[in-house]
Design a protein around this nucleic acid. Sequence first.
DNA 1: GCAGTAGGTTACTACGAGTAAGTTACTTGC
DNA 2: GCAAGTAACTTACTCGTAGTAACCTACTGC
Lengths: 242, 242
Amino acid sequence: MEIAQRAGSGRKRMSRAEREQQILGIAEEVFAERGYQAAAMDDIARRVGLSKPMLYEYFGSKEGLLLACLERAKRELLECTSAAAASAESPEQLLHDGLLAFFRFGEDHKQSWALLRNESAVPGMELDTELEGIRRQQVSFTSDMLRMSLPETDEYRMEAFAEAIIGACERMALWRENHPEVTPEMAAEHLMALIGPSLSGEARSFSEPAPSEQELSRQASSTREPPGRTTRPPESSSHDQG
Amino acid sequence: MEIAQRAGSGRKRMSRAEREQQILGIAEEVFAERGYQAAAMDDIARRVGLSKPMLYEYFGSKEGLLLACLERAKRELLECTSAAAASAESPEQLLHDGLLAFFRFGEDHKQSWALLRNESAVPGMELDTELEGIRRQQVSFTSDMLRMSLPETDEYRMEAFAEAIIGACERMALWRENHPEVTPEMAAEHLMALIGPSLSGEARSFSEPAPSEQELSRQASSTREPPGRTTRPPESSSHDQG
DNA sequence: GCAGTAGGTTACTACGAGTAAGTTACTTGC
DNA sequence: GCAAGTAACTTACTCGTAGTAACCTACTGC
């Protein structure tokens, strides 16, 4: 019955750090393949070859375990996208490379992507916060790119663009899963075709930008956060993959 | 203890159709305010003033109940968007009105929107199918619009555009929830500013429309003509604030 | 070899989805 | 009016899973 109990009772008792990594790996697997809800802690424990209370010892709760998995996936995603963008030479190229990296991420990190993709609407406030944090990471990343393309554009519009682009990315990544013949390159190209034109000088609007709109933005800007949270370099920290 | 047992035993025993509607209304409420997972069938039953097995009698399962709620919300959304689009006079206007209607939907049908927004990634294959169906509804709706703006565009690209736009819409609708000062009109305008230029005759690509995808990403030289040659001198926004 | 403790287990509780079998009140035929 | 029939409804369960209490064990240093 024991799964990870290979060759007698030899394989037991690891150090905390070791176990943590092992559990994370297996949990990622289980969450990715069965989904958060359907994944049972008992099942994860069994696959690890450990008893359930240990999972709680290490991660506090089911949500905590998922959270730890997501943290890893999030770091990977950020690394991929910022690495890709690092070598770009023009703002358009930058955006394109970022998009491309995003679409490639889904193929190169299937498991992490499955996590980010499927567990994006799990209940739990902390989880919501984390997921939203991941999106904000992508949004601010995108904002940074946009700021280069559209230096004179109103901050509000820039943020709106960034949000819209992230949303478009997510949706297209999902769409691609039903169309395997659409390569990451093609997806990125499509998206660039859609948003590129508006980033090349012509960012105003399809109609004239209503003056009342900008005024409204400024009037109600009390709740806005200062734009200092953005430009951080890619955190090239140690990559502890178990 | 009984909540809906007003004035003795008078208020009991309704016809199937009546109860169904009553249950649907309350379930929508509960799902919207607590989320699918956190919503307990016992709770819904209690609020209806009925015992749990009746819910199963009427809707088969928790998922079935949510499904019925979503069906309603979906119909509402389609009605709103298509009604809005009906009065448009140009393709751009059509798209704009559709977007606007979408953003307004979130305000005018808070409960339905909360359902569609939050329950979009619940497990369960049938649910997934339904949710995907709702999106496909929006996608095909958008495709139809695009077909008018971009009659010569490749079908694949059109679909990609539609998916991207739907994704952008969803994300921006979420974003708007943290920025109440952004009106539906402003949201629609931002989005039009982002995607409008590419719909105005210039739909090819930000690079040349290359046959092979590897080269696309390379030659990022944008040989584009300024957009705006299409059929829309002024923008007489005849929509007022909802 | 014995104390201390990190690492681990068994055996529970709590709670919520779903169900079997029984009960009540309204309708219909006489 | 009153039995029979049935649609609406209830009580009282089963079962699965998140989370926990309390106890056990093998390795450490001395």
